[in-house]
Design a protein around this nucleic acid. Structure first.
Lengths: 194, 194
DNA sequence: GAAGTAAGTTAGTACTCAATTACTACATCG
DNA sequence: CGATGTAGTAATTGAGTACTAACTTACTTC
């Protein structure tokens, strides 16, 4: 169909890969599924990327970068408590609008062990580096409060897990978390914790 | 080699499956890998279980039950703050002694989406039921404090993620968490958060 | 000690999937 | 117009994998 520059194609592959890998993880996602979503033949992926792992890694890094930028933009000019609330709001917004990004994040964390066992030590390094950067991105606007940063990340991971498990928003396990309202667009204020 | 009753064999299969699935997830683990670990031929697994999914589910449910019992035993006769510290200590002990159980737990959370897409709605139900039971198990000794329970679970999920990513115990991302000492056996007291 | 049963294996099937090779359509420029 | 390069596909391959069928070995019981 529509021809695209290789760079543009790679971009749409990365986006499609985030969705697909987010759902099925590395091993549970076929390159064909990604190709189908992009609207391109499966072998063509291997002209755009050296292999499946490279696609996964690209999606993972993009995922981290997006989250980092999201927090940076949310906290622009803010500090302390205000920054915390801004980040929490941004997170709950992402939770509704891009759940696949949260899923992909979890999938990349869990992919480290298997990758390491397969001899790919670099993947783990990249994931840990990404986490550390994300951690610092949160740490700074919170006024370098280690406990606060850790707490924020902790609630984030809990939310990711609840999303992964598919708990409906009105289930009691969400009770302790001030989440986004049922319908998006009606405010989305509130913190990550009660 | 040594013959066993089918029940005993199933038991060892479940244990092996927890290790293997914990590492590679559902799709990243072959039944042959499990069979090898058990020390039995691969096709024999299908006489003990109806299929791969059933093995995964059995391992997942065992995993939840173990954790629930762990917390129940840790909090026996305790309440409130004391129960919290007991559970935290038990968790950090498990973190060192049975990391594969924590990994399996995460893997089962992330397996829900893919299972649902494959038409297996029951798996998600089972996982959510397991989480809810675990939640209640923590909730009770904490004096039915919703916020406290949520916080405890949140820190637990964060720890699971850090373990999955393979962060060494002395990395700064652990700073905000009072974790177990470098060598096991030297006390292991302290809570989940700083 | 023969018969029956339960534990376990070997061999094989049908299928999926990552990756390669060889080809085609379309543009742009000399 | 012809040449060169780039976006893309069709066909295929070889490795792995869940699962089946048929057979074998050991324990138990009368």
């Amino acid at each position: 169909m529509s021809r695209m520059s290789a760079e543009e194609r790679r971009e749409s592959v990365v986006r499609a890969a985030m969705e697909e890998f987010g759902r099925g993880g590395y091993y549970g996602t076929s390159t064909e599924a990604i190709a189908k979503r992009v609207g391109v033949s499966q072998p063509y992926l291997f002209r755009l990327f050296p292999g499946k792992r490279a696609i996964f890694l690209a999606a993972a890094e993009r995922c981290v970068e997006d989250t980092i930028r999201m927090f940076e933009e949310a906290t622009e000019g803010l500090e302390g408590e205000a920054a915390l609330h801004a980040m929490a709001a941004a997170y709950t917004k992402a939770l509704v609008e891009q759940p696949s990004r949260l899923m992909m994040q979890m999938q990349m964390y869990l992919a480290v062990a298997a990758a390491e066992e397969e001899g790919d030590r670099e993947f783990g390094e990249a994931v840990r580096a990404g986490w550390t950067r994300l951690w610092d991105t949160v740490h700074l606007p919170l006024g370098a409060d280690v406990g606060g940063t850790t707490e924020f990340m902790a609630y984030g991971m809990l939310i990711n897990c609840l999303v992964a498990m598919g708990f409906p928003r009105d289930h009691r396990v969400w009770e302790g978390l001030a989440t986004v309202p049922a319908e998006p667009g009606s405010g989305a204020r509130g913190g990550l914790k009660a």
